[in-house]
Structures are given as C-alpha cells and as structure tokens.
C-alpha cells in the first residue's frame, strides 16, 4: 500500500465526477491510498493565466504548499490542473513534490506490472484511439513529458487492458479547451475533425484523461448538428465532408510576413477577412450512413455514428472489475452502453 497526495480539481468534483469515482476505484484495487489535499482551491485553469499571471501562479502555489505537507508525491488527474501545478512549481522552485498525471502515474513500470497482474476481464475487441490532448504534454519544459509530440504512456496502459490501440496522428491535437463556453463554434470545428480522424482510424471510441477534452468531444458530438448549424462561421460546402484537415493552402505562400507598405490605411498584416470566413467553414458531423466516412451503418445502432469518449480510468476499472460503472455511463452525453453491449462487455 502506497500513499499518494491527491488533487482532484474542480472538474472532478463537478462535471467529471465519473473520472474521480473511477480513479478512486482503480487506486483501491491497486492498493494505492489517495490522500486528498485538505481544503485545496481551484488551480485557476486557463482563465487565470489568460487574465492575470500572478493570480495563475499564486492559486496553484497554495496547492503546492498543501501538497508538500501531504507527502512526496501528488496525483493531479485533470490535465489543466496538472499543467498549472507544474507551471507554478517551475516558477517558484523549492516545492519538493513529484506531480503525476494519471497516464504517467499508472504507466510507471511497477504499477503497470501490478495492473497487468490484476486485470480480470481483458477488454478484447474494443478498438480505441488514445487522445492525450495538450496540457499533459506541452510544453515539455513545464510538463517534463519525454515525448511531447508522440506520447505512449496511455498506449501502454490500454494495451495492458487488452484493447486494440489504433494508430492516429491526432494524439496531441487541441480540442479547443476553454473556448467551449464562449466560442462553441470553434470547439465544434476542432472536435469534429478529431472525431472524424478517430473514425477513419477505425476506432470504436476515444479514450482521454482530461476532463476538458472529454467534455468537449462528448458534448460536441451529442449536441452536434444543431449547434454547428446555428453557430457555424459559414455553411458547410459541398465536397467538404471527410476531408479531415481543411487548411488554407495560401498559408504557405501568399500573405507573407514581409511587410508591404500599408495601403489605404489597412494593415499590411491583416489577411483579407473574406477568405477567413470561407476557410473556417464548419461542417457538422454527418449523420450515420452519409458522407465518405466509416459510418458503419450496420453497426451504428443507437450510436448514430458518434463515438463514446471514455476516461482511461473508466476502462481500467472495467477491466479490473471494480467500481460502479453503470453510474458513470449514465453521465456520458454519447451513451457508451450500446457499444459495450455490442462488444460483449457488461454495462452494469
């Protein structure tokens, strides 16, 4: 039995309670005692560093003080919290505590071996893509990630659970993060791209360890089409489906950095707005059976071509046979139960 300090963060006490519950269940099964920091406060997430640098460091620093009292190791499962705590640690040296994120924590050789030994129900047949997101990896100066562009810790965990890990190149692409509230149209665009890439890789579901990624991917699919229709920058164009990255071609050549003299008062650095609108075309996810994707009409069932988005700890708990997964599935926007049933996995 080892003891580790635990900083859940606001999300795990609110919108991502299933992450918290499944993590606790997994830790209990692996003989890891989580000591939640007493009276921890919000780390500031993206808002604090957007508006006030000093606040961003001070909010996280108070938690570091608490963590040092709690022990030599701290587990911060939320990617944003992890990033803020690491940032504060780099800015204010002297806090001797090892800050872990979930993936790296469980992918540690000792714990991985323990996990392998205790897996009761390998999740065979489930094809997944691991989605690491931004803040557990970048920038490596802050996160100390060994391979920020091609992380493999979650891959190792998933393989241990017996799932089929599909290769895709969107492991660390951004989901839009906190823009979800103020500019859901942008998040919709980024998440649509991710979900399509996952479908093209032949995945049944996406696995993540970040509450913000999970919420963005889950909500953007569930609220998908109507939201995209109403908030799209411009209507989707013909032939725009399934293209994946829809990047402006002219970016490489035309509106160069070489500053031309200003003409007619307009900034030489401002590219024409017209074009931006055209390129920003946001197309909603095509309904199952349409478009050039693997929409798997026969298999889709009630999933309607959408992919459930799991927390890594939920799949770990499922393979270990611990916790109360039925409570977690109920909280997902894209209901994972039809998928689990199809794969012969228990949903209760």
């Amino acid at each position: 039995m080892i003891q580790v300090g635990y900083y859940p963060g606001c999300a795990l006490h609110g919108t991502a309670a299933e992450f918290d519950e499944s993590l606790r269940a997994v830790c209990q099964a692996l003989d890891i005692a989580l000591a939640e920091l007493a009276d921890w406060n919000c780390c500031g997430a993206s808002s604090a560093h957007f508006l006030d640098d000093q606040l961003a460091v001070e909010l996280a620093e108070r938690n570091l003080q608490l963590a040092v009292q709690a022990g030599p190791e701290l587990l911060a499962p939320c990617a944003a919290c992890f990033h803020r705590l690491k940032t504060a640690q780099k800015h204010r040296p002297g806090y001797e505590v090892v800050i872990w994120h979930v993936n790296e924590f469980f992918a540690h050789p000792d714990r991985l071996a323990e996990l392998r030994r205790r897996v009761q129900r390998p999740l065979r047949g489930l094809a997944v893509v691991p989605y690491y997101g931004c803040l557990t990896q970048r920038q490596p100066k802050i996160t100390d990630a060994p391979q920020p562009e091609w992380p493999t810790s979650m891959d190792a965990l998933l393989e241990t659970l017996g799932v089929q890990v599909r290769r895709w190149s969107y492991k660390t692409d951004c989901c839009g993060g906190s823009l979800e509230v103020a500019r859901p149209d942008l998040v919709q665009h980024l998440c649509t791209r991710l979900v399509r890439a996952a479908q093209e890789a032949g995945a049944d579901c996406i696995v993540t360890a970040c509450p913000m990624c999970q919420a963005n991917l889950d909500i953007s699919q569930a609220m998908g089409s109507p939201m995209a229709e109403k908030t799209a920058l411009s209507p989707p164009r013909e032939g725009d489906k399934g293209e994946g990255v829809n990047f402006p071609l002219s970016l490489a050549g035309e509106d160069g950095p070489r500053s031309r003299p200003a003409e007619g008062g307009s900034s030489p650095l401002s590219p024409p707005r017209e074009r931006d609108k055209g390129e920003g075309a946001i197309s909603p996810l095509p309904p199952a059976g349409e478009g050039g994707l693997r929409s798997r009409p026969g298999e889709g069932g009630t999933l309607n071509g959408h992919l459930p988005v799991f927390y890594i700890t939920e799949l770990m708990a499922l393979a270990l046979g611990v916790g109360r997964p039925a409570r977690w599935w109920r909280r997902h926007m894209v209901d994972p139960r039809p998928l689990l049933e199809r794969k012969g996995l228990p949903t209760e």
Binding site: H49, C134, L135, R138, Q139, P140, C174, S178, L179, L186
Partner: peptide, 10 residues
C-alpha cells in the same frame, strides 16, 4: 481565439 494549446511554444 488562441486556445493556449502550447503547440507553438513547444
């Protein structure tokens, strides 16, 4: 509209 994904800095 920067999402602070840190790709540029990396």
């Amino acid at each position: 509209v920067c999402a602070a994904c840190q790709t540029c800095s990396t």
